[in-house]
Design a protein around this nucleic acid. Structure first.
Length: 318
DNA sequence: AAGTAATCCTGATCGC
DNA sequence: TGCGATCAGGATTACT
């Protein structure tokens, strides 16, 4: 479930269930779901098996679970070559983790928490877990289109805060608008010099992360801005209003458990969100605009749909 | 350098 | 019922 609210629903659902659990088995059913793993599938399995999972984190549409690797088995002393002094790298219980399981849901990914041995159709990767308090459980990574992925990646320091880390493959995206450290003035500055349409900019994860096609259309409708309005023609005030609408729609969707059009987009317990009932523009082509009553239309844009009210959301040029 | 199209995929659904 | 076309919530890559 792709956009920020849906990913956050998954992250929040995972947190109490898997934090502190140990991975007992890893089954890769389709290697294409490891396309973002920097190494062969066996490497993914080896690094994850036996590892302990810490509390899941998120930025934008990416989620990751920091992992503490299985402590390496002590080699029998007699096999140690020479007597090279070994660095005391283990016992670092207070050390912060250096790697994480990175999960991206793509267009159709789901993370489902199940009783042991439960199977789900279209499962691409399966993790069997043992939790000290909750016992055994199974995590099925389901993904119809295989645009999503799992990967083990190194955690690197962020550049804009102390003692925070992020997977290296996520480091290039901007913070999301619900992040306390989101740099609003930097976003507005970049927006002002961009030469592109506003929707393209909203979907550019290096400018602001977490927004996808649904919430871009919803926020633009709320702010009464046409999706092709050039970014450099938006006043700072209009841009700030738009950002406010983005935050509002993301928060409301999160409160309602995300958007589910059908059984494909579910939380970790296989349940739908309710925000689909609150959509004003997305998927509402042919329906009356909730504000002015005229028909919402859909246009093809970036190989997908843009939904808007042609009366409320006028393209203003010049 | 920056902006935009092309590409990666499968499965559900719709119209004929 | 069958079959092809269409559509889907994303991000990276390769061009211009």
């Amino acid at each position: 479930m792709p956009e920020l609210p849906e990913v956050e629903v998954v992250r929040a659902g995972l947190e109490p269930a898997i934090t502190g659990a140990t991975v007992t088995a890893v089954t890769v059913l389709d290697e294409r779901s490891l396309r973002r793993h920097p190494g062969p599938p066996e490497d993914f399995v080896d690094r994850l098996t036996g590892a302990t999972l810490l509390a899941p984190a998120r930025r934008g549409k990416y989620m990751w679970v920091p992992i503490v690797p299985q402590p390496p088995l002590r080699e029998p002393v007699e096999t140690q070559p020479e007597s090279a002094p070994l660095p005391e790298l283990v016992e670092g219980g207070s050390e912060s983790p250096s790697s994480a399981l990175v999960v991206h849901l793509g267009m159709s990914g789901q993370v489902l928490l199940r009783e042991p041995s439960v199977e789900d159709r279209l499962t691409r990767i399966r993790l069997d877990l043992a939790h000290p308090d909750h016992g055994a459980l199974r995590l099925n990574f389901v993904d119809q289109r295989i645009f999503g992925s799992m990967a083990i990646d190194e955690l690197v320091p962020v550049t804009d805060a102390r003692s925070q880390t992020i997977p290296s493959q996520v480091a290039h995206i901007a913070r999301d608008p619900v992040d306390q450290l989101f740099d609003e003035s930097a976003f507005l500055r970049k927006l002002a010099v961009r030469k592109t349409g506003i929707k393209r900019a909203l979907l550019d994860q290096t400018l602001v992360s977490g927004i996808g096609n649904i919430y871009a259309d919803e926020a633009l409708w709320a702010a009464r801005i046409h999706y092709e309005q050039p970014t450099n023609t938006l006043s700072r005030l209009r841009a700030k209003v738009l950002l406010g609408e983005v935050r509002a729609v993301l928060a409301k969707a999160l409160a309602e458990g995300g958007t589910s059009f059908d059984t494909q987009y579910l939380n970790v317990n296989g349940e739908s969100g309710y925000f689909a009932h609150s959509l004003n523009a997305y998927g509402q082509q042919g329906e009356p605009c909730p504000r002015c009553g005229r028909q919402i239309i859909r246009e093809t844009f970036m190989n997908r749909g843009s939904h808007f009210c042609p009366f409320c959301q006028l393209l203003r040029l010049g």
